[in-house]
Nucleic acid binder design. Structure first.
Lengths: 153, 153
DNA sequence: GGCCATTAAATCGCGCACTATATAAGTTAC
DNA sequence: GTAACTTATATAGTGCGCGATTTAATGGCC
């Protein structure tokens, strides 16, 4: 609480920051990350690691770049992350025989099994977000549309 | 481009990731960051640094924690960031006389002047986002509502 | 005064996210 | 077949963002 002497300015300029979509996006994403950090603690995963696991649960045996396309992340981010997942024995990484440049990432048994522990997560997040399912869908679609606009530049 | 052999799976599971609001939020925020990185390059600022500058342009002479409240960031993030702004000679940092625990952050002339260079930025972002102003406002309000829900836990 | 709890910043360590660059495997052109 | 180009991953360095701890100043409370 900043107690005094900055209330009379809140109508003019202070709102300038709060009026910005970009800041709302930034700050909301941080709040969402914090929620996930709490929920993912028991799985010993970070949110980006959880995203990679979700990708692999949907389709196993993907190359690094294929995971990268799905998440809009590149090898500089993914390689160390995947190494951490590997040392947690959730995935394996091996060069493909057909093309030795590529690295195929596959789930271990532990990695596959973790999916069951993660099943309750979406419901918990939805509860915490406090929006109706339709509101969440609408928001999601608007965000995806915005992202598409931002990416076409 | 992943060319073949994973198109027939896109209806079932692949959409699970894309169906999630959280991922949309995450990915859109990354895209927005990329846009800002490009636009802020000429100002030699990162997006979080730009946020701090906006806060100070709105109200100068704030303590670290007061900036932190406005941006939902703590001293572990802000102290090094502010030191970078200081060494770029955009802000000054000095302990307040009344309470030596506090550090007051103030704009230098250079820091104030930078505001003029930043004036064109919001319009450029708005153009890139490709949404109407009313759409952006609606989206912003929904995000703020979501953030508020996420924070009350 | 002296002790204790509280508060404000700073520090440490880790994990992204990204730019730029490197390495190495594959492909093309000649 | 080899030089030139392209592609897939990895590495190096920077800057957040945060949990956990530390340091130092302040405010009671006796």
């Amino acid at each position: 609480m900043t107690d005094h002497n900055d209330n009379f300015e809140q109508d003019g300029d202070l709102l300038a920051l709060e009026s910005q979509l970009c800041f709302a996006l930034y700050a909301t994403q941080l709040s969402m990350s914090k929620l996930y950090r709490r929920l993912l603690k028991q799985l010993e995963l970070t949110y980006p690691q959880y995203l990679v696991m979700q990708v692999l649960w949907q389709k196993d045996h993907l190359t690094v770049s294929s995971i990268g396309e799905r998440l809009s992340l590149d090898s500089a981010t993914l390689t160390p992350l995947l190494k951490r997942l590997e040392s947690a024995e959730l995935v394996r990484r091996q060069r493909t025989r057909e093309d030795e440049r590529q690295v195929e990432v596959s789930l271990t048994d532990r990695g596959s099994a973790l999916r069951e522990k993660a099943r309750t997560l979406p419901a918990e997040v939805e509860r915490a977000s406090g929006c109706s399912t339709s509101e969440m869908k609408a928001l999601r679609d608007q965000l995806n549309a915005l992202k598409q606009n931002l990416d076409r530049i």
